[in-house]
Amino acid sequence: MIHKTAKIHPNAVVEEGAVIGANVLVGPFSYITFNAEIGSGTEVMSHVVIKGPTVIGKNNRIFPFAVIGEVCQDKKYQGEDTLLLIGNRNIIRESVQMHRGTVQGHGVTTIGNDNLFCVNVHIAHDCIIGNNIIMGNNATLAGHVTIEDYAILSALSPVHQFCTIGAHSFIGGASVVVQDVPPYIMAQGNHCKPFGINIEGLKRRGFKKEEIYAIRKAYKEIYRSGKRIAEVKPILEEMAKEYPSIALFTQLIENSTRGIIR
């Protein structure tokens, strides 16, 4: 189950049954259980713990003392075979913790592609992490949190369970997120509050001027018009017919269980 091109340090422990892909590197004193699968080109540095059931994709880099696929910190968990799925090209820095799901949730914790998880990030059970996300040092997610594509969660910021952080949003450092954060916006504080649109981020990702203008207009409808969310929603739906990017606002509002930050 170990590809002939994989390089396993003699001081690493890889249990029989683990699947190790082509050109995988496993450093000294790392421990990989029998029910873990590691895709080709992934580098597992020294002192990493990977427990299964866990499936890790291709070309990831996992730095020392990361704990991947450990059982969750949830009293309801009774040893069920839940799962951690990790995509491709993620950078998982020192002491990051990623836990498997629970049967009461999705049964799986899901990590997408091309993400950066800085030192001591914690991702709890049943979280759904999209693509191209940055989580700063000591940013922590409770269970059942969703982070959408291109969102940035800065250092020292915890997120309450069942919250969603919308795509392209930027959360400033040491913020406490207890409600959903709509897409595209900048937010900060304890509790986290909105402070406008993440314009520079949108420009870097190729959003056109008219799209950014429409997003700003949608933001003003939500936060500055004095209207209730129920009144704003049909306006956003109408705007989304011309500018599909506005649909991310309506989708988050529709699916929100905790309400959006105000």
Rank of each mutant, 00 (worst) to 15 (best):
K217R: 12
Y219E: 04
L83D: 01
L85R: 14
M98P: 08
G107H: 00
T250R: 09
P234D: 12
K220A: 15
E221D: 11
K220S: 15
E254G: 10
I134G: 04
T250K: 07
M135I: 05
G105Q: 01
I253E: 11
Y219M: 07
D114T: 02
N190Y: 00
V232S: 00
N88C: 09
G259E: 09
R93H: 03
K220H: 15
G39L: 10
Y31C: 13
P10N: 01
T5S: 14
I261N: 02
I165V: 15
H106Q: 12
L236A: 00
C163L: 03
G107Q: 06
A22F: 06
C127V: 00
V44D: 03
I215Q: 03
P10T: 00
S175Q: 07
Q97F: 02
H125A: 00
L252R: 03
N88I: 04
E16W: 09
G39C: 11
K7Y: 12
I128L: 11
K203D: 02
G173S: 09
I185Y: 04
G130L: 05
I2L: 11
C72K: 02
N59Y: 02
F65E: 00
S169H: 00
G196D: 02
I197H: 13
H99V: 03
V71N: 15
F249A: 01
V13L: 12
I261G: 00
Y213K: 12
M1K: 11
I56S: 06
Q179V: 05
G136E: 07
I261C: 00
Q97K: 11
I197Y: 04
G79V: 11
Y213Q: 14
M1W: 07
R258G: 10
L202H: 02
F170E: 07
T257V: 13
I171E: 08
I253V: 10
G17D: 02
A151P: 14
A218C: 12
Q78E: 14
S154C: 11
Y77T: 02
P194G: 06
I222D: 14
K203Q: 12
E43S: 08
I56N: 06
D114Q: 07
V178I: 14
R61T: 10
R228I: 14
I246F: 07
I62E: 04
Y223R: 10
I165S: 08
I171C: 13
A142I: 00
A155I: 08
Y150N: 15
T42A: 14
N120M: 09
I56A: 07
K76D: 10
G27R: 09
H125W: 09
N198A: 05
E70K: 04
Y184W: 03
N137M: 08
G112E: 06
A124E: 06
P183S: 04
R89S: 07
